[in-house]
Design a protein around this nucleic acid. Structure first.
Lengths: 154, 154
DNA sequence: TTTGACAGTTCTATTTTGGAACTATAGCCT
DNA sequence: AGGCTATAGTTCCAAAATAGAACTGTCAAA
């Protein structure tokens, strides 16, 4: 597989993996959702090398997930803010957090608790069907080739 | 960061990333959800090197996401089947597929369409609050340190 | 004038990955 | 018996990605 063209594959998972499917990007995005915005802050909280952090931030900007916004003119300094496209990754992050809570926990209990401001309660994220609202399970889903697949396959 | 102990960090996202946060693992899991089970089948559909495929499958077995089940005695041959822990990754995969559908599409249309057998309709996966059922948005969620975090931090 | 904060870049060593060939077991065909 | 094929890997070397540390440049404050 050629990683440089993974975002053009006729598969939405491949295209997403092309963007967030490396060791650091998801952790950087976690920090973004925790309101981290600046180079030094990412670096010190993640212990990522400055080189890689710089690369990954550029990549996220290039894909339109972060915006690089000046917050000081002299000297020129920038911070990194989630775009709507970036904010839309929230379900991906939350799905992973929930799986980690469920299957990778230890005796210390959950690292973080999530409160839904709308209803005021601590919650778990649940994935449901957009049409009937039922909780989704892999075995109740049937997959069809869509137009993008048919055209790609022939 | 030390990748070999990422699964012990006091953060559920880190722990999940420790398992699925590399270039190949999510693509292998996609194939699992599409009912692929055998070494040769993974290899030919993903074009992953045999070496890496072997490594990744071992890792997924070690973490209890796949089971290695014999399907032939002479010669000994095995196939790889999702455990419940593996099936529970479905929301992660679906969240990524949905993000790809929404933000990484091209003029050809969606590669795959998903039908919910329960209601018979083509659907999108939606993440909701377990308590009130409302659709989740990052800005409506407040994060608290849980017991696992407090104990780890001090 | 020196120090420190911030946002990177540059350099080398180590690790991971890609690509191709090789091994091992066994069934099937002639 | 001898050779072909299928399956599930392992081995080896080259290429690419990552880690770790030092360095650059701008400006503010002491």
């Amino acid at each position: 597989m050629k990683w440089d063209t993974l975002d053009e594959e006729p598969c939405s998972l491949s295209r997403t993996v092309a963007v967030v499917g490396d060791r650091w990007t998801l952790l950087i995005l976690r920090e973004c959702f925790l309101r981290v915005r600046r180079f030094e802050a990412f670096q010190s909280s993640l212990q990522i090398t400055r080189h890689l952090l710089s690369e990954r931030l550029k990549k996220l900007v290039r894909f339109g997930i972060l915006r690089r916004v000046p917050y000081s003119e002299t000297p020129k300094r920038y911070e990194y803010i989630l775009t709507q496209k970036g904010l839309d990754l929230y379900p991906v992050i939350m799905a992973m957090v929930h799986w980690g809570d469920t299957h990778m926990g230890d005796e210390r209990g959950r690292p973080l608790l999530h409160e839904h401001k709308t209803c005021g309660k601590l919650f778990d994220p649940v994935m449901v069907c957009s049409e009937c609202g039922e909780v989704l399970h892999a075995k109740q889903v049937h997959v069809h080739a869509g137009p993008g697949r048919k055209e790609a396959v022939g």
